[in-house]
Design a protein around this nucleic acid. Structure first.
Lengths: 134, 134
DNA sequence: GTACGTAGTACCCAAAAGGATACTGTAAAT
DNA sequence: ATTTACAGTATCCTTTTGGGTACTACGTAC
C-alpha cells in the first residue's frame, strides 16, 4: 500500500533501478533522507527545513519511510510531545545513493532565475549521440 | 509541464537530491534509462524489454526523457518506421547515479515469492539507531 | 486479399498523490 | 486569560498519473 509501483514488480523484471526508486518515490522523501543523513531531527525541526511541506504530507512521507524500515520514529512520552526521526542502519546504506543523486543534481540541475523551474545544464552535452546520416 | 515537482523547486531549497529525482520520476524512466545505458534501442525493442508497458506509456516516458535532454530520438524516414532511442551525453552523466540505484536495489530489495511485492532485506539492519532509554 | 510489423495517436476512465483547512490535547510562557 | 509550541488527525477536494481500447499509415510476406 501507498506503493502502487511495488505491486508491479513483475513489470520491471529484475530491474534494480526501479526497485530502489520505489522506496524513494514520494514528493518529499528525497529531501527528508537528505536531511536525516546529517543526523536525527524532531518533527518540527524537519518541518522548518521544508518550508512548503504541510503537516499532513510530512507525516505521510515519514510514515512511509518508517514502514520501509529506512527511518525510525522514537516517541518520548513527555509533554509537549517529543518525536525524533533518525535513519536506521538500513537507511544508512542508502548514503551512496543519496550522495550520487545529490552530486548529479549539484552538477547539472539549476533553477531558473525566478526559482520556479528546474533546468538541466545543457552546455554542449545536450546534443544527440548519433547524428542522422542519410 | 509533466513535472509538477519541478514547479516547486522553492519547496526544496537547494536540495539537489529532489532536483535529480525530478528527472527520474515517472513509472518507467528508471528501467528505460537502465536499458538505454547499455546501448541504443528501437521503440519496439524497448517495448519487449518492458513486458507490461503500454505503447502510450512508453511513448510518454520517452518523450519526457527526450524533453529533459537525457535521451535522443532519431527517426529514419523509411517504411516501416525506424525510430532509435539513445542516451545523450548529458544522459550518460547519469551513469553513476543509475549504477548506485542499481547496486542498492540488488543488495537490499528482493521480491516476495509470488513476485508481487517488493521487500527490503531486513537482516538485523532494520533496528532503530537510537534505543529509547527511560 | 488478409495479416503482420513498425511507431505511434486519440479518447476516456480509474486510481493515486498531493494540497487546504480545520481540529485535537497538554503544559509552559506571557 | 490568552497564546505558543509540540506532533499530529480528519475531512474534503483537485491535480496528476497511469491504464484500456481502438485507431492510423505504409509496405512486405503469405
Amino acid at each position: 500500500m501507498s506503493l502502487p509501483r511495488a505491486k508491479l514488480v513483475k513489470n520491471f523484471p529484475g530491474c534494480p533501478v526501479e526497485a530502489t526508486l520505489t522506496y524513494l518515490d514520494g514528493k518529499w522523501k528525497g529531501v527528508i533522507l537528505f536531511h536525516l543523513m546529517e543526523g536525527t531531527l524532531r518533527f518540527n525541526e524537519l518541518r522548518r527545513k521544508l518550508p512548503a511541506v504541510t503537516q499532513r504530507m510530512l507525516t505521510k512521507q515519514l510514515r512511509e519511510l518508517e514502514e520501509s524500515g529506512l527511518v525510525s520514529r522514537t516517541v518520548y512520552p513527555v509533554v509537549p510531545p517529543r518525536v525524533e526521526y533518525a535513519m536506521t542502519p538500513l537507511g544508512m546504506t542508502l548514503k551512496p545513493v543519496i550522495q550520487a543523486l545529490a552530486a548529479w543534481g549539484d552538477a547539472y540541475v539549476f533553477c531558473s532565475p525566478e526559482g520556479r523551474e528546474l533546468r538541466l545544464a545543457s552546455d554542449g552535452l545536450r546534443a544527440p549521440v548519433a547524428a542522422l546520416e542519410a
